[in-house]
């Protein structure tokens, strides 16, 4: 057989070439680049420049770590971060405990129809846009016609001025966040509980009648991976939490609900100091990554 004949079947195919896979990948990669990578790189570059768009005549000179130094010595930045941390450590335990209780109730045998109904209901808060949660929050915690005060009046308490007192506003955003995210914890824990093999649970039931011991020694190991996921996702989410709080309180009254993302937004889009805001955002990104790595290192254990 001649060389020419052997080469014949490999004549160019118009429908498929070596670049074809690239064309299929291109839209996704391009989108990712445009909405993910480009802004991040832009923020990174901007964070090293003086970049105030209200003063374009000064140009956008490269200033090295000046913005970072400014941010790290800015007491408002630190107090916002501290407030965010306070918010996180307030909402997370509530969500984990309530979520676990809901998951344990849903894990109990019996009442099939009601349980599947409850499981579907759990998705509703998760599917609600943050801004809408904020709007609902504004209605619930309205001083004059909100249901929160209506319920308090049933219990014999006078109206509370939720959104215009510092404590009330913080409590209000905590309650709305718990409302929105407890179902998420419940679903994650429910998945964890259903991972426990039935016979292992039964073996433990033969050795102890304590439900708490069963939870601690047999079910908890299956819940830890889920708990880690909840902690990582929630910490990332709380650090970027913006819409719900912005709609409800705009960070006020005073700085009572001035979470870090609201502060960064104010620096970037009220003062238009994009350089400083970018430096803050990059620091936030670093904090998120460090916290996530810590959780994974300290908590995450595969059961099998």
């Amino acid at each position: 057989m001649s060389e020419a004949m052997r080469a014949a079947p490999t004549k160019p195919n118009r429908g498929y070439g070596r670049w074809t896979p690239l064309w299929f990948l291109a839209p996704a990669v391009l989108t990712l680049f445009l909405i993910g990578i480009y802004p991040t790189i832009f923020a990174l570059v901007t964070s090293f420049r003086r970049y105030n768009i209200t003063r374009p005549r000064e140009g956008f000179p490269f200033v090295g770590f000046e913005n970072y130094v400014a941010v790290l010595t800015d007491s408002t930045f630190w107090s916002s971060l501290l407030l965010t941390a306070k918010f996180y450590v307030t909402v997370l335990p509530i969500q984990v405990v309530l979520g676990l209780i809901v998951a344990l109730l849903l894990h109990k045998p019996g009442m099939g129809l009601l349980k599947s109904l409850a499981r579907v209901t759990l998705v509703v808060p998760l599917a609600t846009t943050y801004a809408v949660v904020g709007l609902i929050g504004r209605l619930i915690f309205n001083r004059d016609f909100g249901v929160a005060n209506q319920f308090l009046s049933f219990a014999g308490f006078g109206p509370v001025d939720w959104l215009s007192t510092p404590g009330g506003a913080f409590a209000a955003i905590v309650i709305m966040d718990v409302w929105q995210w407890t179902p998420f914890c419940a679903l994650i824990f429910l998945a964890g509980l259903s991972m426990v093999p039935g016979e292992i649970e039964e073996a433990a039931r033969l050795e102890t009648s304590s439900k708490l011991a069963l939870l601690r020694h047999v079910q908890l190991p299956y819940l830890l991976p889920g708990l880690t996921a909840v902690m990582i996702l929630r910490s990332a989410d709380v650090l970027k939490l913006f819409d719900m709080v912005f709609v409800m309180t705009r960070g006020g009254p005073g700085s009572a609900t001035d979470l870090i993302s609201i502060y960064i937004q104010r620096v970037g889009f009220r003062i238009f100091d994009l350089g400083t805001a970018s430096a803050q955002a990059i620091l936030l990104l670093i904090i998120t990554i460090v916290i996530s790595r810590l959780y994974i290192r300290l908590l995450y254990r595969e059961v099998q």
Binding site: P197, E199, I200, E202, A203, A204, R205, L206, E207, T208, S209, H217, V218, P221, R301, V303, Q304
Partner: peptide, 20 residues
């Protein structure tokens, strides 16, 4: 009576050992 109070022990087909 509750299982744990019956003072019985059981060996399961799947062994049912605590994996962790």
């Amino acid at each position: 009576e509750e299982p744990a109070k019956r003072e019985v022990s059981m060996v399961f087909q799947s062994y049912a050992l605590y994996p962790h």
